[in-house]
């Protein structure tokens, strides 16, 4: 899922940075408004740690190899702050694992972070409609993977690859990842809802 240095053209890299910096500012402000970020630091660091090592868990599928992303899980548990968390996680991955690269951090954060934010929105909306939390978690885990694949294909189109071909290839390769992410996210959400509902971004209140 990570795009390497030097694959993309300069305007795409620049656009990625602009989007990511803007979203970092917005999500950090937003996160501070709901609840002090300082209080969430332990939760943030642990989830970032999980994201950081998740990309080492890989599955070889057909012509390529794919790895866990956990962007849906981060979106659901951290809310808007998942974006800065993924930015930090991706920076560490680029520096220490050579996954992706430093110049394309903006683009890579966008590819994985935006689906995380969308999963968070879906999670909140679904919760208001009384959908089971476990099912919602699973849905968000799978959805974030699908969206990341679509964004990846969109970005790669700018390198001259054909959208439908890349999207198909990437989507097929990510089917196992989608399933694993759905299971992991569903399980974690169900577990947190039971044991520690305050960690979820929705107010379970009287529904426990």
């Amino acid at each position: 899922m990570h795009i390497s240095d030097g694959v993309l053209s300069l305007p795409v890299v620049a656009a990625g940075w602009i989007i990511t910096v803007a979203l970092l500012v917005i999500t950090l402000r937003w996160g501070e408004r709901d609840k002090s970020i300082a209080e969430q630091i332990p939760k943030l660091s642990i989830m970032t740690g999980a994201f950081f090592v998740a990309s080492l868990i890989h599955v070889s599928v057909g012509p390529t190899s794919v790895h866990l992303i956990l962007n849906g899980l981060l979106g659901v548990v951290l809310g808007v702050l998942s974006y800065p968390a993924m930015f930090i996680g991706l920076t560490l991955q680029a520096l220490l694992f050579q996954h992706g690269g430093l110049t394309v951090l903006g683009v890579n954060t966008m590819i994985m972070g935006v689906p995380g934010l969308i999963s968070y929105a879906v999670f909140k909306t679904g919760y208001k409609r009384n959908i089971s939390l476990t099912a919602l978690g699973a849905l968000c885990g799978a959805l974030a993977t699908v969206l990341a694949v679509i964004l990846l294909a969109v970005v790669l189109v700018t390198t001259g690859e054909e959208f439908v071909a890349v999207a198909k290839l990437a989507a097929v390769a990510h089917v196992p990842i989608m399933i694993v992410e759905a299971i992991v996210t569903g399980f974690v959400v169900a577990y947190l809802a039971k044991v520690k509902p305050e960690l979820l971004p929705v107010d379970l209140g009287d529904k426990r």
């Binding site: 939760k43 989830m47 999980a50 868990i57 992991v184 960690l199």
Partner: peptide
Amino acid sequence: AKRGIGILALLVLLC
């Protein structure tokens, strides 16, 4: 809060 962090840490360790 401590308990929650403990649970999350356990999950990460499991992973």
